[in-house]
Amino acid sequence: MVTEADPGEARASVWLAAGRVTPARRRGEAPSALDRDRITAATVRLLDAQGLARFSMRRLAAELGVTAMSLYWYVDTKHDLLELALDSALGGQSPPAGPPPGEPWPVGLRALARDYRRLLVEHPWVAPLSMAYPNIGPHARAFDAALHRLLDAADLVDPGRTGAHLAVSRFLKGCGADVRRAPEAEFDLAVDVLIAGIEAQAARHARG
């Protein structure tokens, strides 16, 4: 099924494409009032205000006061721009480097999860985009690295470590619209269930 965010066909991620930086041949001719960062920031604002279903390059151009065609000096497709906006929103988080000094790893994991919940509440369009596109931008990789560091502190080994990482990341990305409807206490309980499972896995490993 093709979703609002799904390109519906095979495409390279903007983070892997050679043209993710505006080529020199474009920079010399591109509208001087624009740059990719400004366009991405405007995309985030428009998605927050109007939602993913109403987003279009024409609406974005109107927001910026330019023609729709001028945007294509900086991005090849709308999907590239949505990927850039997704990673920009993820950059609004402050992933902990690891458990706070003197605190066990579950404290850090709860903080990471709550921060991600806040992101989903503030930017409802992040959830469907996270499911439609690969999360391989710099901010997405920083978040993933923070999760890996927390699980390192849990003393897990594969396959338990891989399973724990998958369970936490799938839970957070899969919350979607539910996170806006469910009370925060229910979200915290779900995170506690995940933590209990990780702790049980680590205990089995410790017993050999």
Results as ranks from 00 to 15, higher is better:
100 P>W: 00
30 A>L: 08
51 G>V: 11
57 M>P: 00
138 P>T: 00
171 F>M: 06
134 P>A: 07
14 V>W: 14
160 G>W: 07
158 D>V: 04
131 M>L: 11
145 A>C: 00
123 H>A: 03
14 V>H: 13
147 L>C: 03
53 A>K: 04
26 R>L: 15
99 P>S: 15
187 F>S: 05
176 G>K: 03
82 L>W: 09
175 C>I: 00
184 E>F: 07
61 A>F: 04
185 A>D: 15
208 G>C: 08
153 A>C: 12
95 P>Y: 04
207 R>N: 06
26 R>Y: 14
179 V>M: 12
201 Q>H: 13
162 T>L: 13
24 A>R: 12
205 H>C: 12
68 A>E: 14
167 A>S: 11
179 V>H: 13
2 V>Q: 13
128 P>S: 05
94 S>G: 12
97 A>T: 13
85 A>L: 01
2 V>C: 10
44 V>M: 06
172 L>Y: 06
135 N>K: 10
94 S>A: 14
26 R>M: 12
148 H>P: 01
2 V>K: 10
169 S>L: 15
156 L>I: 03
62 A>M: 13
138 P>E: 05
186 E>P: 00
61 A>R: 04
179 V>S: 14
125 W>P: 10
51 G>N: 11
50 Q>M: 09
141 R>N: 08
161 R>Q: 03
56 S>W: 09
188 D>C: 04
82 L>S: 07
17 A>M: 07
46 L>F: 10
10 A>V: 14
103 E>K: 06
94 S>T: 11
47 L>W: 01
126 V>F: 08
2 V>A: 13
